[in-house]
Write a protein that binds this DNA or RNA. Structure first.
Lengths: 343, 343
DNA sequence: TTGAAAGCGCTAACAA
DNA sequence: TTGTTAGCGCTTTCAA
């Protein structure tokens, strides 16, 4: 790897006998440059192996083509896949990514992060942290002195905030309707931790769908897990004890659902004959378990991609004169994948 | 969210009746400022809610406190956990992260990525892409005109390159020795895809350990998977057919190992009685399967953390006068977690 | 201890 | 079509 002396726009200008401004025009593909000049400058650029300094450009333009992303729970697969969607689409649209994480889902020091982003001139921010407990409360603090387009993921409607999220209620409906279609009469729910918005929405979807169809629903038929395999096992034991006549169960994520399948097998409950199980997520393992798991697939990569698109729209709108903030909420539709655990 | 007019160092200087340089000294905690002056400036900073513009600082200092990270396979849990380790440690050391990904493990356009990082003035780069096939070949191209400290993860020794990686051979040794200790006589291996360095090293460790101990080893006792559950199932079928007397198997990752457990159960092979199984990775699910999976745990968060530390050392060394590049290779030691699948 | 001047590398506005 | 002049916001000499 050769050590290269830094080549600036000035060197290029000197070598090609034009002003820096002309070089600037060339690298920015402006129309007002004579073809021969352009060619010559391009040659010199190639010869000197010149690359514009993005930092200097950002400073000068007051625009960085950088997006700030705040992520949480990167050691879980969901947030990671979402991040992948974000990175790829940002790349596609010519934006780079500045990544921050919040370690704890609840207790973030929001302001320093936003200020850090702001001081780095990011053009916008994607807040890819699930809504848990009170972790959106800061939005109401009037003293947040940061002026940046922010796009939120996975949160409840909130005054003048743009959001991209999975339609959890629809997903739950698909799952529960399918169980009803397959003849289940007593459909329970193993929920995620209910301080999570996603968990609450999935539970709500389960409840709505059953009650609208005139089925019997009670709190008794629902039990709370914490997304993990371990909690799934424990919760399933309790649920089956509370409701011995359960013949269908909608589980709020696949990890717990796989755990249910396994526990059921240990208890001698035959799936799908005696119990039908639907998960949520669509993790790869769900396909190869036996029985394979019927699940509600959420396309998290698409979620991330959509978030970037929406944010870039916000950014571009802001650059226009007649800028007015009309918040948007985009819900990504999940889809049901039917496999052995319900057939 | 209030719209805030941009406050610059100049505003602070004016308000506090000093020069910009003095303000600069205060925000950089330089010693040569009179206490009263410092206090006054601090007050004004607070009052105006001033934050230094990181972009301008980077440009002026020729140093950004930013690290470039190239990641691959973010939709898998391993790379994501590693990334988490990187983010956290970078944050701890006061560095921000600029994230790029390569979609395909093999075919990266390396140069544009490095140039992009360089033009953004990153202080160093972590190349968090596993070594697969020929994807390190570009290191030998002398025409790479980028001059940046780079730290590589998961790659074979390479002239004058610093590396942080998992000690796969040690991990494999731990696994195989344990199987020998548990009385296995015919120990097979289900490898990862052998164009991956990690897969090759794990296989090598298996082979070495057995042959050194005077056990019978042949290519026949090894079969190649592609890390996925699906491939694990298929490979296991084939292996058990080739070697019906197998009583122990070291599987190169947990996904495939769990698949082996399940397939064994379907085939009526009792684990651990007739067959003992050891995986590699230490994914959470391995603990809750039944039987729970003995596995070689690799602390990927630690791996990422170590990579950042090593890179920052490289960066700081480079700033010293007597800078000489002495490449380091750091191997993180994995550890064996013994569970039911081998007892 | 402080400030003036120059510059980091680039772009915007204006003039030619 | 091109160049000149001012910045963008900050830091680094160097002088006072």
């Amino acid at each position: 790897m050769a050590v290269i002396k830094k080549v600036t726009i000035y060197d290029v200008a000197r070598e090609s006998g034009v002003s820096r401004q002309t070089v600037s025009r060339v690298i920015n593909n402006r129309p007002d440059v004579a073809p021969e000049t352009r060619t010559r400058v391009h040659e010199v650029i190639k010869e000197l192996n010149y690359r514009p300094n993005a930092i200097a450009q950002s400073l000068s333009r007051q625009k960085s083509y950088l997006i700030g992303v705040v992520s949480a729970g990167l050691k879980y697969i969901g947030p990671s896949v979402t991040l992948k969607g974000i990175v790829d689409q940002a790349e596609a649209l010519g934006y780079g990514l500045l990544l921050k994480t919040v370690s704890n889902f609840n207790d973030h020091d929001v302001v320093p992060i936003l200020q850090w982003f702001q001081s780095h001139q990011v053009d916008g921010v994607i807040w890819a942290v699930p809504e848990i407990g009170e972790n959106r409360k800061w939005l109401d603090h009037k003293k947040i002195t940061v002026d940046l387009p922010i796009l939120f993921m996975a949160m409840a409607e909130h005054k003048s905030v743009s959001i991209v999220c999975i339609d959890n209620i629809l997903g739950a409906r698909l799952a529960v309707r399918h169980l009803m279609d397959m003849g289940c009469k007593h459909i329970g729910h193993l929920s995620g931790p209910l301080d999570w918005l996603d968990a609450r929405e999935r539970k709500q979807g389960w409840h709505l769908t059953l009650s609208e169809a005139g089925y019997n629903v009670s709190e008794n038929m629902c039990i709370e897990g914490n997304w993990s395999s371990k909690s799934g096992k424990k919760a399933f034991f309790e649920l089956i004890e509370k409701c011995p006549n359960l013949d269908g169960i909608f589980v709020a994520n696949d990890q717990m659902a796989l755990s249910v399948l396994q526990t059921a097998s240990e208890l001698g409950i035959s799936v799908p004959n005696n119990l039908k199980v639907v998960g949520f997520d669509g993790i790869p393992e769900s396909e190869f378990y036996s029985p394979s798991l019927t699940t509600v697939y959420q396309n998290l990569e698409d979620l991330g991609c959509t978030a970037v698109n929406a944010l870039v729209q916000l950014i571009e709108k802001r650059n226009q004169t007649n800028y007015e903030h009309e918040p948007r909420i985009i819900r990504i539709q999940p889809e049901l994948i039917i496999r052995q655990s319900t057939q």
